[in-house]
Design a protein around this nucleic acid. Structure first.
Lengths: 192, 192, 192, 192
DNA sequence: AAGTAATCGAGACGGTACGTCCAGTCTTACA
DNA sequence: TGTAAGACTGGACGTACCGTCTCGATTACTT
């Protein structure tokens, strides 16, 4: 009587895992648009019927596979706001340069532009990615008696916006000096 | 002898225009991925064969249609750097909120991730869009004797990066206060 | 366990039948060359993909549709070789004048000239059509002690060759008198 | 006023010749159905427009090219009917085995089945091919006082029908013995 | 020698068909 | 009940060819 509705069928678990793994593989290789259900079925050995049983539509599968993209993000504690932000920004830049999701993210942004489900997923995923940034800023500002002139969210935008911009829009180099400059700006803003 | 290579068959011009117009329409409605050659042919009245005669591949047509997306951008001259940047940033934000290309750009970024031709088009298009920002900053810094501590390109990134970020990534509101905050930051950076 | 490999999906049977029927219709109307897969799909209501699932190529479909062209042919037994051959020849002439395959056969012969698969089909089909002729001649010759001076196949050729010749090459009338003349010749040859 | 409508423009002649030559080449290689106007234009260097200026339709060009297929046929005079027919039949068999038109003829027969222009061309061409056979038979019968029991045309059919039959329908070997057998039959028929 | 008319090439145009790939639904048999 | 296997409709892909068209460049014949 403890858990009457557990799902004990291990086949379900196996199918789900195989499909998600193959989807993830195709996604990072060719973007969201390059994922083909037929090909996922072929390569994973899971029948197309089964895939559609678990995910009502292609987009749903993509969303599911996307949300497992990035790893966990924790707020560091170096003792100073500059140190914390620098650690976070450097970590983000490193992921922008190497992580799988870095090549897939534009696909998600594009799809989100016209698909509200994907947009919700993006929003949630983005929140998780950015949370540590907001956390360290809030923590640094915690002891201040007077109200901040600049919203924390604005400081985050001022810091990570340029990083994303360089990665996907301008495609200029994302070097250490650039990161430091932006961190400096953010620290100054946070102090206001 | 003024026009040595005139193209006298007016059908060419008509076909090209009709196809590009229809492509543009579909593009802004459904993104790059939503453009179908068959549908363009059907809606424009131009035969598929003719389309492929003018553009060797689907991507080539998309690139051609994309490069006609934004309007011309000129550097304003309000008398102060803050005024110039504010005018440019406000204009950009307005476009991000209303212009056709705003919904299409993520498609381009995504495609550029895996298609070098599209990447080149994006680079060129982006350069044209950002040129006025760099121009007003360079002009403001022109009279200074000592070297700038922060590169002009970094100032541009610090200003427009957050705007793009809010439009496509965080999807937070792009209000006047935010723009002003970022312009202030940029002006401060430019002074260093 | 009587039917080990039943094919229980009735859609398969329905599709196959609809496609073959429509192909046959187009074939007898416009010859092999006039059969278009697109048109077959359109008129039969079966999707093009499904057609190609069942027949790897256009020629395969045509071959399949062709082999169902003529009806069964049985050797008659009128008591005399002349009677048997006359019955067979008259039947053949009647078919040459009225049957569907009569208008299609030149297409097959033409295609067979350059397509070995079609050539094999033609050979097999032709064998079935001519078998009764050879059968009645062999039967009539069965009791003879000494060897025949003229091969049975040559007698068949001497009889049906002129009939085919008139139908497709010279296009002269194929009347009763002509048939009788050729039957007389064949009987004389068979006696040698 | 000597020749008011002469056509002395050698360009016309050159184009016509080049097109017919290339058409003939493709025809003997791939049958009537394998002739493509686009390809003829490409290979002959004559513009498609020019081709359609000279021949109103594809079929017209094919007909024109076909009628130049076989060489001239003359009635031999060996002194005996058997000798004459044997010479003609052997010549025909040799052509059936080697000549270009032998592979194309089924195409013509097929097309003629549904195209009256091609049918007329076939009739005319066929008449020329068969004329010598009828000629030698008529000559041999010329001195006879009483009327022939078998029409000359029937004798021709009894001789050449089997030859055509073996070449295109039964695909059995066309050897010397077979030819002799059929010639013997024809001679016997002609005597009746 | 200049001018006019016939002829040409190059290739764009709208259409139809080709054979392939994929999305998403449906049917059946097996576990 | 969940799966594998795979048939089904529908639609897009990029290519080939048909027969028509537009255009400017050659060529031949007139004057």
């Amino acid at each position: 009587m403890v858990h009457p509705s557990r799902s004990p069928d291990r086949r379900v678990e196996r199918s789900r895992a195989a499909v998600l793994a193959e989807t993830h593989r195709q996604m990072t290789r060719s973007g969201l648009g390059g994922v083909s259900i037929d090909e996922v079925a072929r390569a994973s050995g899971v029948a197309k019927t089964t895939i559609y049983r678990h995910w009502p539509t292609r987009a749903a599968l993509l969303i599911d596979a996307c949300s497992q993209l990035g790893g966990p993000h924790e707020a560091p504690d170096t003792g100073s706001l500059r140190g914390d932000l620098h650690a976070l920004a450097s970590g983000l830049v490193h992921q922008l340069r190497t992580a799988n999701w870095s090549a897939v993210y534009p696909s998600i942004v594009d799809t989100a532009e016209r698909d509200t489900d994907v947009a919700a997923m993006q929003r949630e995923w983005h929140g998780r990615l950015m949370a540590p940034f907001a956390a360290v800023i809030s923590r640094a500002r915690a002891g201040r008696e007077n109200q901040a002139a600049v919203a924390t969210a604005d400081v985050v935008a001022a810091l990570v916006g340029p990083l994303f911009y360089r990665r996907w829009m301008s495609k200029e180099p994302l070097d250490e000096a650039f990161v430091s400059t932006m961190v400096d700006q953010a620290v100054a803003m946070a102090a206001r």
